[in-house]
Design a protein around this nucleic acid. Sequence first.
DNA 1: GGTTGTTGGTTCATATATTGAACCGTAATT
DNA 2: AATTACGGTTCAATATATGAACCAACAACC
Lengths: 269, 269
Amino acid sequence: MSSASKALSLLSHFSTARPEIGLSQLYRMAKRDKATTYRHLQTLETAGFVEKNPLTKHYRLGPAIMQLAQVREATVPRKEGAKYALEALADATGETAHATVLSGQTLYGLCERESPRHGIRAVIDLNVFPFHATASGLCALAFGPDDLFEVATQNLDGFTAATTTNKRDLTKLVNLVRSQGFGRADQCYEDEIYGLSAPVFDHTRSFAGAVAVACVASRLTPALERTIMSELIIASREVTRNWGGTVPSDIEAKWADTVMHSTAMESAS
Amino acid sequence: MSSASKALSLLSHFSTARPEIGLSQLYRMAKRDKATTYRHLQTLETAGFVEKNPLTKHYRLGPAIMQLAQVREATVPRKEGAKYALEALADATGETAHATVLSGQTLYGLCERESPRHGIRAVIDLNVFPFHATASGLCALAFGPDDLFEVATQNLDGFTAATTTNKRDLTKLVNLVRSQGFGRADQCYEDEIYGLSAPVFDHTRSFAGAVAVACVASRLTPALERTIMSELIIASREVTRNWGGTVPSDIEAKWADTVMHSTAMESAS
DNA sequence: GGTTGTTGGTTCATATATTGAACCGTAATT
DNA sequence: AATTACGGTTCAATATATGAACCAACAACC
């Protein structure tokens, strides 16, 4: 591991839940030497990636990130392209909607939107989405590059009782996702959270990320699930279009199949 | 220079004007070895700070920046706190308004707002503001920590014929800014651009950045200058308040003085 | 169709920059 | 007054970064 990547990885310990971190807390969190951590923080500070709260001497993310974000957003306006679709998705389903982007072999959270309908909501506090335990991650495995499966199996952490932690079951699950066109994670990452996702494609015609709805499991009804699926289709189409891609026709076909099937089940019951 | 900072500094070569850069172009721009640059890019890529355009194999800023920006914005919502004030400033003056933030010993551009009133406008395409040649920079020297003056004199580049390039003149200029409460840069950084700025303070009661108006020099009249100054006062008060600070009373006094003086001059003429 | 000049990417011996245990001074807690 | 935690510093040991030279692939050109 290069020293640069060690320094950079320090940044990932900051979150909205933990916006300011002291030197000692950070080197323990990062499981690294204190002196090294200190030097890395200094490097990051001179580069403007972190700054020190002059009162507490704790560190927080710095302003250089904001400029880079401006440039990134101007270059690849993915966030902008997902924003409105997510709003519509959250409003229509009454649950929390979010989008993820695949870069290299990592699936990142891009943005989220909570629905104001219910007092109890799912809150997405994830930077990197595990492939095997989230709806979006399963979408990536199903529709993204093949080498992701290997990456995913490197680290099959069991987050809840329902998490798939062996290769064989994961293969089955991915195949199911592939056949349905939707990723599904029933309390696999967090108890009480049921995730449903659809893939998003970019201008290279390949998998670029996912849109997803994380709903409170106890609130899920077959009717809500149908609503979520059809809204996910709409959202995926829109975001895909905004990212310069088109939804492959085989995916569209699978969606149609899955939704029709689910509707038939419902009316039969 | 640490290897981490070398890697990070690669990021600063990306801009809205140059959003995608190939390996060879980049190592030449950064004046570094090709192999080193390549490895740094790989490091940045695995960290999600850059990504490769799969078509051109050129690099562009990556999605990790967007998440960090989200966290930063949630932590220190300076951009949000400046946004509306800048809009008002641009609308009231009919010129381009922008805000800068000081972090460590560097003055960064935070955001800008162009006024739609005129076809010809000043465009701020700066990431880092030189202290000696911009209105915001002079504000930082005048009201920020004393050690900035030393940093500023390390690099007294002459951008235009009017740029102050020696210590003695810069001292005089800074003193003038200090006595007036406004930074002023008459075509010091770019020809035809006249900058006027006011300091902004944060919760530690110290200088945190500046709000500024960059106007087309040929359009400047004494009346417009008066308008800009009084609008800058309003903007500085609002942004300072949003950043958790209060404008020191001595600055307020200087502003009152300067504006009154300028009004007297005008009515006398 | 071969020559030339790009490009992105790779190699390996060299040497330089990174590392971490132990250290210090300060400021709260007990 | 002793203890514990904090941010920050030191220096010998060594792991890590470096860059000249090298590919293969592509494009322009005569």
